[in-house]
């Protein structure tokens, strides 16, 4: 058990933000698990997509901080989908069910890739307003697993876990990073064989993002300089895909900065979302926007914050 699981913050997350289970395509086995925090009247929230190894709870620090700041934030676990098309359809149904017009996506690793693929598949309807990609990638060929990927469904869970754990950091790391890895391992442990196998299949099946279709979408790339799971060339490819993206660097933080460097990541998220204040696509409640925009809450502010 890591420090984070035992922390009061995590307790507060478990006790204050309810877990919901939603079935969207009539198949009981395919249950989306979501944590929806913040004002419900916001129609364009920030949606967190976890990496292959984690559940929605890995974003608990973002959910707590950002919902307290007035943002609507949703973290979710995807059910078992074996290919991109199914996943896109399922996700689309989910956001329809939640009555969200558009969404901002924060995607970590596989989550970022899925976010990009979803944005690509809905680029005509523009369901994705913006993307924040954290240690993510846009081409699965980097994993060089496309040959073995079709066989993942029949591999035992232990082996699949080992495949992922192999990427986790070993050696000397600071307390925050160590705790983040512990938390991730716990999270990974809780995933079943089917879930893991399907995520890894999505992760490794040969495919890439057609980034030119996402040209209009504002992108922030959160890049941890010490991370070890992705090589520099993969990161460079990301930057090339999104030449106009904002690059948010963290000096260190390991593979899971949203856990180990939550404070800084939250700052980057807020700066990213700040660009949408005042528009229909804002993930922040109108009241809070006005509050932020003026220090003294004068009457005129109140009257316009409807």
């Amino acid at each position: 058990m890591g420090d984070f699981v035992k922390s009061r913050e995590y307790d507060s997350f478990r006790s204050s933000i309810p877990q919901k289970k939603i079935v969207v395509d009539g198949d009981e086995d395919r249950t989306w698990v979501i944590y929806d925090a913040g004002p419900r009247n916001i129609r364009c929230p920030l949606v967190f997509l976890p990496p292959a190894s984690g559940r929605a709870t890995v974003f608990y620090k973002q959910l707590l901080t950002l919902s307290a700041a007035g943002y609507r934030v949703i973290a979710l676990d995807y059910p078992v989908y074996w290919n991109m098309k199914q996943w896109n359809e399922g996700f689309c149904k989910l956001i329809d069910y939640l009555r969200l017009d558009k969404i901002h996506i924060f995607g970590a690793s596989l989550g970022g890739y899925l976010g990009q693929k979803f944005a690509e598949s809905t680029y005509l309807a523009q369901r994705v307003q913006s993307l924040i990609l954290c240690n993510s990638f846009s081409d699965t060929s980097i994993f060089q697993q496309s040959n073995s990927a079709p066989a993942y469904w029949m591999l035992p869970g232990v082996i699949l876990k080992k495949m992922i754990m192999g990427n986790f950091e070993r050696g000397r790391v600071d307390k925050g990073i160590a705790a983040s890895v512990d938390f991730m391992v716990d999270s990974l442990d809780s995933l079943g064989q089917q879930e893991l196998a399907s995520r890894l299949t999505l992760n490794c099946m040969n495919s890439y993002v057609e980034a030119h279709k996402l040209g209009d979408i504002p992108v922030t790339i959160i890049d941890v300089l010490d991370t070890s799971a992705l090589s520099v060339s993969v990161k460079d490819d990301m930057f090339k895909c999104y030449p106009s993206a904002r690059r948010a660097h963290l000096k260190n933080g390991g593979n899971f900065p949203y856990l180990s460097r939550a404070e800084e990541v939250n700052v980057y998220i807020q700066i990213h979302l700040k660009n949408f204040w005042g528009s229909k696509e804002s993930a922040l409640s109108g009241d809070r926007e006005m509050e932020m925009l003026s220090t003294k809450s004068t009457e005129s502010d109140d009257s316009t914050s409807n």
């Binding site: 660009n275 005042g278 925009l293 220090t295 003294k296």
Partner: peptide
Amino acid sequence: LEHGLGKCGNEYGPLT
């Protein structure tokens, strides 16, 4: 901001 002024913007646009 201290003067209650407030609307402002940045390069991306629409806050402002």
